[in-house]
Amino acid sequence: MIFKSKLLNEDEVRRALTRIAHEVIEKNKGVDRLCFVGIHTRGISLAKRLVDLVEKFEGKRVPMGILDITLYRDDLSEIGLQPKVRETRIPFDLGGKAVVLVDDVLYTGRTARAALDALIDQGRPSRIYLAVLVDRGHRELPIRADFVGKNLPTSKSEVVKVKTLEDDGEDAVELWEVEAS
């Protein structure tokens, strides 16, 4: 893959997350019954940041869980490589909660679809929101995000890489091009 450009730097990522946190609080009319669930891997780091930001703004720490969608993928009967099954841990009752699902990039919508099924198997939230740092288009399913850090039109041959301090040592969003083989 060839590096093309940096789409968001550290400050821009921070501002985008800060705005999302404010929007979540506003839309939910406070933090009552609010919780966050991060999707592996970068969604978890982003969800942690949002929980911290919500606490900073509202003075209350809301619960957070982590979700692995591997066992809910719709392509397990046809893929070549075997994806690793990772931890799912939702240490609170989802019943009646307003859940903010957090992922790094919204692309085809298939991860979000799988995440909705995985979440609903764990309980019955009163509603589910979707928050993503980047929406890059090219949806294959009727799914949209409620909170978006940045809309970035891309081509299908490009790859959007979200980096986080926790997983990659820096906060950034980068655009890469897949090499023609």
Partner: peptide
């Protein structure tokens, strides 16, 4: 990870559908 699935109220995942 499968232990976690077995500890849920819904002890079933769609992984091997089909």
């Amino acid at each position: 990870m499968m232990q976690e699935v077995l500890a849920r109220p819904v002890k079933k995942v769609p992984a091997l559908t089909g």
